[in-house]
Every structure is written in structure tokens, then in C-alpha cells.
Design a protein around this nucleic acid. Sequence first.
DNA 1: TTGCGATTTAGAATCATTCTTGATCTCGGG
DNA 2: CCCGAGATCAAGAATGATTCTAAATCGCAA
Lengths: 138, 138
Amino acid sequence: MEDDSNISELLAARGIRLTRQREKILAILLQQRDHPTASEVYERAKQKMPSISLATVYNSLEALARNGLLKQVNVDRAPTRFCANLEDHSHFFCERCGAIYDVEAAAAQLGNLPPGFVVFHADVALKGLCSTCSDLNV
Amino acid sequence: MEDDSNISELLAARGIRLTRQREKILAILLQQRDHPTASEVYERAKQKMPSISLATVYNSLEALARNGLLKQVNVDRAPTRFCANLEDHSHFFCERCGAIYDVEAAAAQLGNLPPGFVVFHADVALKGLCSTCSDLNV
DNA sequence: TTGCGATTTAGAATCATTCTTGATCTCGGG
DNA sequence: CCCGAGATCAAGAATGATTCTAAATCGCAA
């Protein structure tokens, strides 16, 4: 599969040790871009790799995210979700159906910060209704 | 205490039932604006009200937040923090010392959303170094 | 004052996540 | 190609934040 060789290269390029588990997990994230939780990734991974453990899923997701191959997405208190879209983008959270969508990057227009404050990142989280759910309201 | 009578009024104005526990918890949040966690609020509340339970702190914080008297602040996976500043503002998270600061509201400049998407809120989370911690780097 | 429904309490339960331990695997060097 | 050091894995226990449960108590409207 070309995808898999691609994944090997991605991992190697980051100097991150290649294991079947990490390959599989990254493949899952690249394949179905619905921002799954660790448990959801675990369920999907078990189908092809029944012996994988949940702890390994957590470890692998952490390793991949630390090396910039995945992004973690947090919404309030809900379980962390993962995203293989490495482009600059923002996330939109549908308050009705709970789905997460990648949307065009929103820029944060900073107000005045107190002197000495240095901003490294500005994360913008959009919340509202997705097209499917706003239709239901009509 | 004028603060407390003020608090009673705040609660009453929202039609939220007045209890000693809720009064105390709101007073704590108004008094020390350092974005405490539920556990921190619990510790402070116990000093004056030793019989209060952690569950009550959670319940009260939830009730106050639901009625718009408090804001919940989430940073990644860390425990939820609470904020009595009802003005429009953003939060700045210091990546070194972990402190949270209220800062002037940052406006999110939305990109193009897919048709049918409706945005209700756009939360901007700023991360970087506060003045104290950036000084250490010089 | 009275009663009902909301709230409190204490502790158990839940849920996501992390840790621990011993087994297994990856990868560079020989 | 084979070996060994160190990284990673699996299984399950442990942790930590938060929520739930059940019974006692309280707030508020009539």
C-alpha cells in the first residue's frame, strides 16, 4: 500500500522509531478524518491488530503528536481528539451533534497585552451549528 | 458585608436558589481572582465552612456557571478553572508557570466557513510566557 | 408555619488517562 | 546477518477529575 510506505517515511523523517502499532494508528488517523478519540482509535485498530492495547494507543498518539504528525484537539472536558490534518486550520464544534470540522484558519486579533507578555500560540475554537444541524432548525 | 449582600442580590436576580454554600463559593471567586480549580475553591471554602463537601463545590460552581455568574475556563487536559470576571475578555496561559491571566478580549477573524455553518462563540486561548516568566529568559 | 422540591453530604462510581512491570521489538554497530 | 542496548509494547493497576446515589436538610412560596 502506498499509504503505508508513505507513513513509514513520515515516521522515519521525524526520527521516531517505527513500529507496527504507530504505523497502524497513523494510518487510521489519515484514513478517516473524523477526529476520533483515543478509544475510538483503539476500537478501529483492534479490528486489524487484535492484540493492541489501549495504553499503546495512548502512547503512540502521544508520540505522534509530540513529533508533529498529529494534532490534539481538546473541547471542554470531553476526551481528547486527534487530527492528522497538518495544514494551518481551526476547529469548529457543533453544539448539537458534537461533530468536529476542520475549517479555514481563523486569525486571532490580539488586544493589548500587559507589557512583558509573549504570545506563542493563539488557538481559536469555533462553536455553533454545522450545516446539517442548522438545517434542522429551519 | 456589602459584598455578601451584593452576592445575594446577584443570585436572586438570576432566580437561583440562595444557599450559604453558593454564596460562599461565589464570594471566594469574586475575592481572589486567580482562576482556581474546584479543589482549590473547596480548600478555601472549608476554612470558613468546614462541613462543605467537594460535591457541593462542584454542584455550586456548575449552578453559578449555568446562570452566567461564573465562567469556566478549560486549558487542555488540566482541571477546569473558574472565573468571576463577567466582562468580555480572553485568557492567557503561561506555559512556564501555569498561571492564567485575564487579558483584553481577542477578536477572532473568521475565515470562510462552509455554507450552513453558524458560529455562536469563538473562544481565543492565548499561550505563551507571562511577564514574570519571560523576564527569566533574558 | 408547612410542605415540596431543590440542595447538601459522604462516599461510591465513572471515565479518561497515566503508570508499572516484565516481555518484546527496533535499529545501529560489528 | 546477528546482537545488544534501549525503546516500545501489553495488561492491568493506579490516579485524578468529575459525576452519581441516597438519605438528610434546607429554601422558599403559599
